[in-house]
Design a protein around this nucleic acid. Structure first.
Lengths: 197, 197, 197, 197
DNA sequence: GATGAATGAGAGTTCATTCAT
DNA sequence: AATGAATGAACTCTCATTCAT
């Protein structure tokens, strides 16, 4: 049985939640403030009372997603003592996050270029930090002889790519429960590092 | 040495090429017809002389990409006689395509929801066809005992995800030549199906 | 030494004072209630607690200015017994007022068309009353042979124009003290009526 | 008989003319692009086809006014040989300009603060140039003993103020023809410099 | 084949104002 | 007396698109 890597759910305020639904369907540039307001059950100035601009809502969403993912990732690494355990916890966390928060993870990823200047850099830095966690544990596993992949950095990137991909096709309400998805995808991720079984 | 799976390059007319550059930077909804016209060195009505609408340019781009990918994929499968060869050629082709045509592949994928009704369905059908080629060869490999993955469909999807991912980070002008990328990523893809070595 | 024609200063409450500073910089239509509130150190509803509308603040400012000017003008006329004295006191008062209260005088004059219907008429009537005081003393001076201008009405208007103009360039903090300004401009105003020296 | 100092009328394109009518009534900030468009018989984007912004229309108006006034002023000075003639021609020109183009002269003056940064400085520089013409001829008259005012700079400013004032009350369609206005106001302006008669 | 001029619709944003607290 | 939250209306400006030339 896989642990729950997301004990406390992401806290998304109603306006961000409404915007998230809109962005998921039409993208940031394809969504108007009026649509967000309607989805949130507010008037247009009602939105502006809480956020100074449309871009600020996107920034808030990206912050929620990356802060949540980074926090959960760091916590998940604490759960293990051996490198193998730490690898499994980190990747399991990544999978669960993208399975349960596929919409915000997807929007966050696909709208990086829509972020305003400063926020974009910060966001990219957070992504590099997340990627570094994966790369680090993979490389440690290789140096410890646990993993035999000749391409540790590429495998680490492949793992991130695969987990991110989950957010684009997986639906928790579908036939495969999250638990099983984590098991299956953890299997595949272990394959990419050629774990010694 | 890996073969060249894309003997004839994609033919992209100047307007589509200009639009592609714009869409890559700002997305479909974030790009205006005026920007495309400027990028193409034409006037706005000059664009409309060749395309009936902005969406039609996107449709053309998606057609170019998917027609090219499907044609190359089918051809690549012809190159092999054994299932293993066919698998390697197909995946190699996928990798090369997303490496060399990363921009159009990325735009095409990320703007599916911006496609007009009818074109979207056709496009999704083409993507299903492409995915079916991968799934088919993986499942055949499993039934022949070449691959030992317990999750053939998930592995097949993972392969598609990984190849698509190439379009988002790989640059042919970077340190890794296409040939090497194909080798490395083919390795990783083979790992996900647990090829019997 | 010229007398002080404004023994009691205009009483401008803090909100009007804040609005005045804003209107001076950006004009009535170019100033928002939020700017006035910020300038006054209040919240927006805090403004509405004291004034029913943005226009009402402008009306209050115009009233302060015209009531003050008319009162000072009438008082100044009382100071003289001969027509020449009365002329000098009235014009001196006009000059001093526009020198010391240039900002409110300028805003009041330049925003006449921004006044709501009823208030505008009242304000224009007050301006006519002020102009009548000047015209009257000039015409009396002509009929008494003190002034020899062949255009008494035009001279009277020119005097008003010149005094109003003071509010647009004169700064009490500049090199010329109010006293000297009054002397110089009184000289010029006397020239326009061709006083018999 | 006074000469015509404005042989060629100001050339104001239809959009600027429409904007001028609107600004005259409601001011720059009190006028919307929609009102200008309606007044010009165009749609809103029709305006933007010719001007990049509302402010740009104001800039164009200010340029038309100041370029026209400066050109006419320089030409008028050429008409005279003696300082007295040059003084009379310059002031006559100023009066005629503000009488015939009162609306654009008034708007231009009253909306200086609505001009965008760069244009405002240029405009103020043009105003300084115009004022310098007046100051110069007055001071020359004083040094030649033609004028006896003890305050040449203040008189020069008073002349500008009086001429500007013309734009705010004079209507060519009213009882006083332009010719007569020029005669009367030239008289008054000569008074302010204490011309030796 | 190309363009200057034009437009209805809609974008993001701000306005003056209100009201429950 | 004061405010956080809200809104209808209007703002400037840009959109994709059309058409006479």
């Amino acid at each position: 049985m896989t642990p729950n890597y997301l004990p406390q759910p992401l806290s998304i305020d109603p306006i961000c939640a409404a915007a998230l639904r809109c962005f998921t369907v039409s993208g940031f540039h394809g969504t108007s403030i009026r649509q967000i307001a309607a989805e949130a059950g507010l008037s247009v100035p009602g939105i502006y009372h809480h956020f100074p601009s449309k871009a600020a809502i996107l920034v808030a969403l990206c912050d929620i997603a990356m802060d949540g993912l980074l926090a959960a990732s760091h916590e998940s690494l604490q759960r293990g003592t051996t490198t193998l355990e730490r690898f499994e916890h980190l990747v399991g966390c990544l999978i669960q996050f993208h399975a349960e928060y596929g919409d915000i993870a997807f929007v966050t990823y696909s709208e990086i270029r829509s972020l305003p200047e400063g926020a974009r850099e910060k966001h990219l830095e957070q992504r590099r930090e997340e990627q570094a966690l994966v790369t680090e544990v993979v490389e440690r596993g290789v140096s410890e002889g646990l993993f035999t992949t000749p391409h540790p950095r590429e495998s680490a990137r492949a793992i991130s790519t695969l987990c991110l991909g989950v957010s684009q096709w997986y639906r928790p309400s579908g036939p495969m429960p999250v638990n099983e998805l984590v098991r299956v995808y953890l299997d595949i991720c272990k394959d990419t590092v050629r774990i010694v079984r």
